[in-house]
Simulated scan of single mutants.
Amino acid sequence: MPEIIRHDGSIVADDWQVLADPGEGEALELPDAPCLVPAELWLAGREHYAGKPEIGLWLDSHEEPELVADHIHELPLIAVNFPKFSDGRGYSSARLLRERFGYRGELRAIGDVLLDQLQFMKRCGFDSYVLRPDKDITKAPRCLNFFSNAYQAATDNDEPLFRRRGEFPVATA
C-alpha cells in the first residue's frame, strides 16, 4: 500500500486512490475505497458525491480553487496536483483554499512532489504529501522542518519574524 507523509512528520498508509479523468465517452467508476475524483467531475455529480466521507476531489494545476469554493466544507480531503516540480500554481491554490475560502479539512499535495518542496508546501497549508515514487519517504520528516525560522508570514504562522522578535529600536539622527 502506498504511503503519505503527514505535516507532523509521520509516515502512514495512504487509503485514498486518485482517480484519473476518464476518456471521452467513458464513465467514472468508483472503487470500494476512499477516492479522489477530478474536480470538474465532482462538481458535475455533486449531489451524488456530497456528504460521503470517502470521496474527496483533486484540483489540477490549471484549475482555480474558486471552482469548488462554495462546496469545500463538504469535502474531507482536497488534493492539489503538481504536474511538474517547477509548476508553482499549487502553492497559490493551497493558500487560497486555506486563507480565502477557510478550508479546514485535509489538504494533500500529489504529483511531482519532491523532498525539498515539503517545508514550503507545509507553510502554504498542505498537511499531507504523496512523494514522487523515486524519492525516499524516510527522509521526508527532516525535510518538513529544515529551517527553524521563516521570515515571512504564512498559513503556519501569520506573523512575520520581525513581529515575533519584538519591535526593533529606531535609530535617530
Rank of each mutant, 00 (worst) to 15 (best):
M1S: 12
I5P: 02
R6M: 12
H7T: 05
D8L: 09
G9Y: 00
G9H: 06
S10K: 11
S10N: 11
S10V: 04
A13G: 14
A13M: 08
D14M: 02
W16F: 08
Q17N: 08
A20W: 01
D21C: 13
P22T: 03
P22D: 04
G23V: 04
E24F: 11
L30R: 06
L30G: 07
P31F: 11
L36N: 05
V37M: 09
P38H: 04
E40N: 08
E40C: 05
L43M: 09
G45H: 13
E47A: 15
Y49F: 15
Y49A: 01
A50P: 01
G51V: 03
K52R: 15
E54G: 03
E54A: 11
I55E: 01
I55W: 00
G56F: 00
L57E: 02
L59S: 07
S61Y: 10
H62N: 10
V68F: 05
D70C: 04
D70W: 00
I72V: 15
I72R: 07
L75A: 02
L75W: 01
P76S: 10
P76M: 07
I78D: 03
A79G: 10
A79H: 07
A79F: 05
N81W: 04
F82R: 04
F82W: 11
P83E: 02
K84Y: 03
F85P: 05
D87L: 10
G90T: 10
S92K: 09
R95N: 05
R95F: 10
R100K: 15
Y103W: 06
R104E: 14
G105K: 05
E106F: 01
E106K: 08
L107A: 08
R108M: 13
G111C: 13
V113G: 01
L114Y: 13
L115T: 05
D116H: 09
Q117H: 08
F120M: 15
R123W: 09
G125S: 09
G125H: 00
G125P: 07
D127T: 03
R132A: 15
D134C: 05
K135L: 04
I137D: 05
T138E: 15
A140V: 00
A140F: 07
A140E: 05
P141E: 09
C143N: 12
C143L: 06
L144D: 04
L144M: 06
F146N: 10
F146C: 06
Q152T: 13
A153E: 12
N157Q: 14
N157E: 14
D158P: 09
E159N: 13
L161I: 14
G166E: 08
F168C: 11
P169H: 12
V170Q: 11
A171C: 08
T172N: 13
